[in-house]
Simulated assay, not measured.
Amino acid sequence: MCVLDVRDFDGRDPAVKFIAGSVADKDAAKAAVAGADAVIHLASSVVPKTSNDDPACDVSSNLIGTLNLLEASVGAGVTRIVFASSGGTVYGEPTVPIVDESHRTEPISSYGIVKLALEKYIALYGREHDITSVSLRISNLYGEGQRHDTGFGVIASFCHKAVAGETVDIWGDGTVSRDFIHVSDVVDAFVAALDHDGDSLVVNIGSGTSVSINTVLDTIATITGREVPRRYLQGRAFDVRHICLDVGLAARTLGWKPRIDLNEGLRRVLEWSQSTANRPSSRQIDSSTET
């Protein structure tokens, strides 16, 4: 069964209109884009692991759902679409240490395959309907406010467990490396994409550096002053082993560069995790390395 999650929304900002629904629902998609000049498409119902568990769900909810959103956007007269693609999955296993947008795309999960297909469909609709499209291939996103109990977001899970004194599960030997990007930098990238006055783009958004899962835990231990217990589990076939994104194109076309380094970002997340440590958890934590 495919389940779509709607994140909590407290409705405190009067400028924000919240519509609970799925892009797979044509009426909900139309309601969401009515009167809009631009669409930022962030919706996704799966992560790499769950996408491989049920590829049909991935296609029906995310690919077909996005086509609904695109049709609704055309009908509403939208002139710009910014899409949250995946810099950690669309390339597959990199053949070079630092990956730019010209690297071949051979995703090893349904999640990456669908993200890549969505880039193509968004570009197609852009050409056919005079819509500027910007697909941001985002690396491993993290930051304050990210839920630790969704099976997505290794740093959120690690920081929560470090604060709680719990054991961290690591898939593989911990040498898997990722390009971690702080949420504030990603928000800046979306703003830059909305302001972009050039041609349609597909562009990497990352830190331009890569660190191993073991290094992340070592850094958390240094910041907190105490070791984080670890349990190593068998690696998973859908996890890309190493990824580091070249973000030069984003600098040249969008005028964007990352500002928050990993040490500062981890400090922020640890402080936030500490401040929310007494809140009840609704799900089992999965400290995955998914992108």
Rank of each mutant, 00 (worst) to 15 (best):
M1H: 06
M1K: 03
V3A: 14
D5V: 12
R7M: 13
F9R: 08
D10N: 15
G11F: 00
R12W: 15
P14K: 11
V16Y: 10
K17G: 09
I19D: 11
A24W: 12
A24F: 14
K26P: 12
K26N: 08
A28H: 05
A28S: 13
V33A: 02
A34R: 14
V39I: 09
I40F: 15
L42E: 10
S44Q: 04
V47L: 15
P48H: 07
T50S: 13
D53I: 13
P55Q: 13
S60M: 14
L63F: 15
T66H: 12
L70V: 07
L70Q: 03
E71Q: 13
A72L: 00
S73K: 07
G77K: 13
T79M: 12
R80W: 10
V82F: 08
A84R: 05
S85K: 09
G87N: 02
G87R: 00
G88L: 07
G92A: 07
G92W: 03
E93F: 11
V96Q: 10
I98C: 11
V99R: 01
S102D: 11
H103A: 09
H103E: 08
R104V: 06
E106K: 12
P107E: 07
I108K: 05
S110P: 01
Y111F: 03
V114L: 05
V114T: 06
L116D: 06
A117I: 09
L118H: 01
L118Q: 08
K120G: 04
I122H: 04
R127V: 10
E128P: 00
E128G: 01
H129L: 05
I131D: 06
I131V: 14
R137F: 04
S139I: 03
Y142W: 06
Y142C: 00
G145T: 09
R147M: 13
R147N: 14
F152H: 01
F158G: 03
C159K: 00
C159E: 00
A162H: 06
V163M: 01
V163N: 00
T175H: 15
T175N: 15
R178M: 08
D179Y: 02
D179F: 06
F180T: 04
S184C: 07
D185G: 02
V186D: 01
V187E: 09
V187T: 14
A189N: 05
A193P: 03
L194Y: 11
D199I: 14
S200R: 04
V202E: 11
V203M: 12
T209E: 14
V211C: 12
I213P: 05
N214G: 07
N214Y: 05
T215M: 12
L217G: 09
T219V: 15
I223T: 07
I223D: 04
G225D: 13
G225E: 12
E227R: 12
E227P: 08
E227Y: 10
P229L: 02
R230L: 10
R230Q: 07
R231V: 01
L233N: 09
L233R: 15
Q234N: 10
R236A: 06
R236S: 01
A237W: 08
D239H: 13
V240I: 04
H242I: 00
L245S: 04
L245Y: 03
G248M: 02
L249I: 11
A251K: 02
R252P: 01
T253Q: 15
L254D: 05
R259G: 11
N263S: 05
N263D: 08
L266N: 02
R267K: 15
R268D: 05
S281G: 08
S281T: 10
R283Q: 12
D286V: 10
T291C: 08
T291I: 03
T291W: 05
